[in-house]
Design a protein around this nucleic acid. Structure first.
Lengths: 186, 186
DNA sequence: GGTGCCATGTAACGAGTTACATGATTGG
DNA sequence: CCAATCATGTAACTCGTTACATGGCACC
């Protein structure tokens, strides 16, 4: 149910096409609900059946035609009600942790390689998010209420990635020690 | 595919019943892959068809019979290979952030209530994880390799919950200010 | 007498992924 | 000529959730 409401909460700022939603071009969308374009197209047509969004066909030369979706009044009403419902945090899921849980089964080098891949991604993301923050949410500048809420979600994106980075450093240190110990045994 | 491997990585430590797996009674399992008992029973029988686990019926007086599952040699082999495959971090998903993204649509009191609920849960979890750490992974004590890896996953559980807590404090501050501002306007 | 724990599952459904498909334009 | 970008979708499938089902024992 949440992808639909995630789409609604984006559309209530600005009308968008399915393609744009799938690209996640907008600031601060990635770190709360991502999906494939196929799923988004499905949900958009379902949302239209429910009367929560409607679309306008836009013809373009030199580019394929597109459907611009916007939220309806009843869509906004639905979103308001959904927000008011009590919610709970999702359980966290991550493949790397499953691997480490049985980490003693394999060479530490293998785990380290994968870990460093994750670390790089988290490092890049945290950097990009911080850049977005510096550019769009300068301290001292007057931000609209909507923008202030957006900033809050971006802040979560940053704390999330930084917490991963910190843990990655811990794990890296541990694995490197393991590798050294293994070499000494030989 | 990951729930199956998550089950394998737990079973390769110790044989367990579906019921025990569903309860997540074991330390450091919750924060990487949780599921319902129905899904776990399904996956266990699939894993058995694949030859990666097998079960022994255990009859009990005063309690219903149960099936104790253990990992097979080919199960361990599969797990080893799966761990060696390169992986990527999952996109983070959380309902609260979708709500805040469209947070200007509703009264800040409503959001604050939900936020405080989340904060409480994260606070309890981080507390519990830290207690587990203090009890099972005392600094200075000699830990088996398997236990050291377990500790690493628990460490991630802690950094994750603490990062949520820190962000919750930020968000709480913001929402409380919003509520004050709203009151002043009247 | 009701609630909760132990222990297993089936059935129906909804959510999400992967593969496949189309077709024009722009840039190297 | 190949790859990428724009733009939309269908079909087949797996994964995951919700509802329903059973049945005995222990405890208050």
């Amino acid at each position: 149910m949440s992808l639909k409401h995630s789409i609604l909460s984006i559309l209530c700022r600005k009308a968008k096409t399915g393609y744009e939603l799938a690209k996640n071009s907008e600031i601060s969308t990635r770190f709360f609900w991502s999906s494939t374009h196929q799923q988004i197209y499905k949900d958009l047509s379902q949302l239209e059946k429910l009367g929560w969004v409607r679309h306008k066909e836009i013809e373009q030369d030199e580019k394929p035609d597109k459907k611009l979706y916007s939220i309806t009044k009843s869509g906004v009403e639905e979103l308001r009600q959904w927000i008011a419902e009590p919610s709970e945090p999702e359980p966290s899921k991550d493949v790397l942790l499953i691997k480490l849980f049985a980490g003693d089964l394999v060479d530490p080098e293998i785990l380290l390689k994968d870990l460093l891949g994750h670390k790089k991604i988290h490092s890049e993301r945290s950097k990009r998010y911080k850049e977005i923050e510096a550019e769009y949410f300068k301290p001292g500048s007057e931000l609209s209420l909507a923008r202030q809420f957006q900033h809050l979600t971006l802040r979560r994106g940053i704390t999330y990635e930084v917490s991963w980075l910190n843990w990655c450093r811990e794990a890296e240190h541990f694995l490197r020690e393991r590798i050294v110990q293994k070499a000494e045994k030989k």
